[in-house]
Design a protein around this nucleic acid. Sequence first.
DNA 1: GCCGTTTTCGGCCCGACTGTTTTCAGTCG
Length: 565
Amino acid sequence: MASTNEAAAALLREYAELLVITGGDRFRARNYEKAARSVAGYPEDIGHLDSAALQRIPGVGKSIAGKIAEYREAGTIGALEELRARIPPGVRELTKVPGLGPRRAMQLNRELGIATVEDLAEAVKAGHLQNLDGFGARSEERIMRGLQVVSTGRVLLSAAMETATSILATLEPVSERCAYAGSLRRMRETVGDVDILATAAAPDGARRITDAFTRHAHQVIASGPAKTSIRTVAGLQVDLRVVAPEAWGAAMQYFTGSQAHNVAVRAIAVRQGLKLSEYGLFEQEKLLVSRTEEEVYARLGMEWIPPAMREDTGEVEAALRGEIPPLVREKDIRGDLHTHTSLTDGVASLEDMVAAAGRRRYEYYAVTDHAPNLVMQRMTTEKMLAQREKVRALDTEMTLLHGTELNIAPDGSVDWEADFLAGFDICVASVHSHFDQDKRAMTRRFIKACENPYVNVIGHPLTRKFGKRPPVEVDFGELFRACARTGTALEVNASPERLDLPSEHIRAARDAGVRFAVNTDAHSVNHLSNLRYGIGTAQRGWLTAADVINTWPLSELRAFLRKGR
DNA sequence: GCCGTTTTCGGCCCGACTGTTTTCAGTCG
């Protein structure tokens, strides 16, 4: 995606948030939010669109097109600067704390001088909030819970990936070889800092690489010939290591980690009287291998281990036995089974989403817009049926599945009766409300949804959102058994802010006999490419293609979706 | 601020939940 889109979207989002904080027209604010989502999800680079083309983006009219143009020319938006000047710095940050909205954030700033999340944490600890109008013990408790979710100092996998990709693009011309390593390569769900490795193409190559690298810096933390650390404008730390070409494999192995994995692998080297470091595998002082990761692992008697598995949770032993499973790959996916359109909260039309899916060479593709019980989506039975007709009439080489994303009510029931549900090709069912039910009630709720003969996939099972919402509490053992027993798949939601089911639960679910669907939950054309993060998460859960229903041929998928009916 | 089988105005993302309110404001999905 073009970074202009993301940058412009961020400014529009900020403008919307500041409008809300100042108590401006909520419809106006909402429109800026919608425009921000549209711009972020717009498949073309808006960097060179003229005013008329900009206004063809949904939710962008004359005024917002003007603001985007102003940003492109001046690098900023005057109206936004004015709002920034009017609102105490920090208040916007405070509204990021779940349970704390614009009014309360302003009040805290005005009456207690709270300007940062850290201030807030201290004030809560000191019990200062209880003396305020409208705050009580429960509000304090709620904010305390919110504080635990917010700002972990880590960034979303997608943000780290975009940073790494743009840096690598400028290193490629001046280096012989470069790649990202670390937790990003392991596809951890969030990333603390980005590690980049490069080898020099020429004698003075190291300096040219470092120069190219530091051009991305908002701040240079440290810089030497072998290691440079910067912080980007977004506050993300990126470390560059320049290594000798012949040490590439050993260095990649070392800097990919995880630390626990490396400790386990080095222990194996030691047992064989060898020493493994970022420079290579050595016997005494003699270098044995270092050029490729495969060589390093092989010399230790191990299969090469996919980075996503390198967490020392059994992969080292599996590699020694030669039993590394053939992990599911992005190209194994034959279709996306959870996507939205502008009929509900997506920002692209049915036609545009389907066309984009076609470009990904899918064999099948499911349209699963929201169901009526999520009232704000304004779905109706009539709209759903009208969409079904449009889906059936679309001319595409893919097989289109008309589905829906149902809402699992607190009692486990879903939207619509059985006879209407029977008309869908596929039903995803997700929790969208009452997140704080106790574990027993939540478990019953999920199990009842699984037992519904029309519910095929439980969407984003834990409903967590990084930095925004904690996971629900559920008895995983019972949930997994219910899924396996009823033929209900669990989703591995690929949205970078979800990555849900998380990898640490995937293996247990698979061992219980559960099948999975790796879906993007796309709300825009661009979101379709988030699939890679879902695949990374599935790989971290050791899933093979056989475990994932949307790698299966259509006939087998359809048989699964019939759920024994 | 955007948009139109409502077309230059008037509606739009509504309704539930929660806490501390004694009649409803704030927050959320």
